[in-house]
Design a protein around this nucleic acid. Structure first.
Lengths: 212, 212
DNA sequence: ACTGCACGCCGATCTTGACCTCCACTGTGC
DNA sequence: GCACAGTGGAGGTCAAGATCGGCGTGCAGT
């Protein structure tokens, strides 16, 4: 339960690790604790204990708690935006694009649920540095989809952004719900369902104006 | 800027207020501070100062910071769920239902943006009591829509819930984006846009199966 | 009308808890 | 056998939640 996969469990004696490996391990331990407890409730003592090292080591690798958190956040923020971008760039068929984007969200939630919760359930959104990064993620995802919508439907940028935010929200919330509900529906099925919902919603937009 | 509409500004001398009025005023001040700063960054000193009273008065009305927060949260949680329920019950036409639900979200964001941010951007989701209430809101909204979807399309409950969560996410995120972006699109237009997106997405579901 | 009472309010304080550093120890290379 | 590097646990500091003695005000009784 408490043991993490570090290299110190051989005798309980401390083991020497190269700095880069130690850093990676500290990041992993920090991620587990931050996700489980949230930023505020997570104590540096917990993270150090989780990693099987002492607190000074932590401070030799990171100047403080915030920097440690931001390092994790940055990594995952980049990953999410990159995935959505890839989904848009991977094909020219818009139906496929929607499917790929939805799959990106579900993949992320499925395989990196910790990272997902770290970014989207952060209890530090009020901090300017964190808020900026999280908003950047949503803006980035929305922007990627917005461009596609504009070039295909010709609606104004403001309208396209609104639609894109709706699609992003649908994928995000559905994926989150699917995870929280214990994956009751097989993943492929869930993806197909949400992709269909999104695609039918967006597909017919260029044909009709935007009147009520 | 700093003055709140209390009755203490006449001379700078404290004014005696009946308990119920004082309580209401404290709740209003707390809401402003919680929304502006988030739960953790909000200090009881700030709330007291905002209300124009001293800290002990706060503790004479509420046992602690958490209870104060939960009192606010409960009020608004009930309000949101009630609005979505009303949107479902107000008509039998499903297209109108979607429109009403979307309008409910935008109305809420437009007129009670503080309450919206308090519930949906809470930095206390890790606390069990808060998590329970917030999840109850989303579950409530999803459930209300789920029932309608089931009775109209006949898909399984698990699938209907997933679709409902997608719709809720779309409305929620779009409304949030619309607010954060400074209401660049007129409200009615934005509502119509998101309603159209949602309706087109969900309307054709009974006709076609759920294959990929 | 005057006095004592009770109540609500305020300034100043205490304490807890968490982030962030200092002394004794242990195992290793020459 | 000896210096050294890195670890572990104990402590300082500070912010923020929670609380105690004094003060001023309005009211009841005579």
């Amino acid at each position: 339960m408490t043991a993490v996969g570090n290299g110190a469990q051989t005798t309980g004696r401390p083991t020497r690790l190269p700095r880069s490996a130690r850093r990676k391990q500290l990041l992993a331990a920090a991620q587990e604790v931050f996700v489980a407890q949230g930023y505020h409730a997570a104590a540096m003592d917990d993270i150090a204990e989780r990693a099987g090292v002492s607190k000074p080591v932590l401070y030799q690798h990171f100047p403080g708690k915030m920097e440690l958190y931001l390092a994790l956040l940055d990594t995952h923020c980049d990953a999410i935006v990159a995935k959505v971008h890839d989904a848009m760039r991977g094909t020219n068929d818009n139906k496929e694009r929607v499917g790929a984007a939805v799959r990106a969200y579900f993949d992320f939630v499925d395989h990196e649920s910790e990272a997902f919760r770290l970014v989207f359930e952060s209890d530090l959104r009020n901090d300017p540095a964190v808020r900026q990064r999280v908003e950047r993620v949503e803006q980035g995802c929305i922007a990627a989809i917005t461009d596609t919508i504009i070039s295909d439907t010709g609606v104004s940028r403001a309208h396209a952004e609104l639609l894109a935010s709706g699609l992003v929200g649908a994928a995000e919330t559905a994926a989150q719900f699917w995870l929280a509900g214990g994956r009751q529906v097989p993943k492929a099925e869930a993806e197909a369902l949400v992709a269909a919902l999104s695609w039918r919603g967006i597909a017919s937009f260029p044909l009709q104006g935007e009147s009520a």
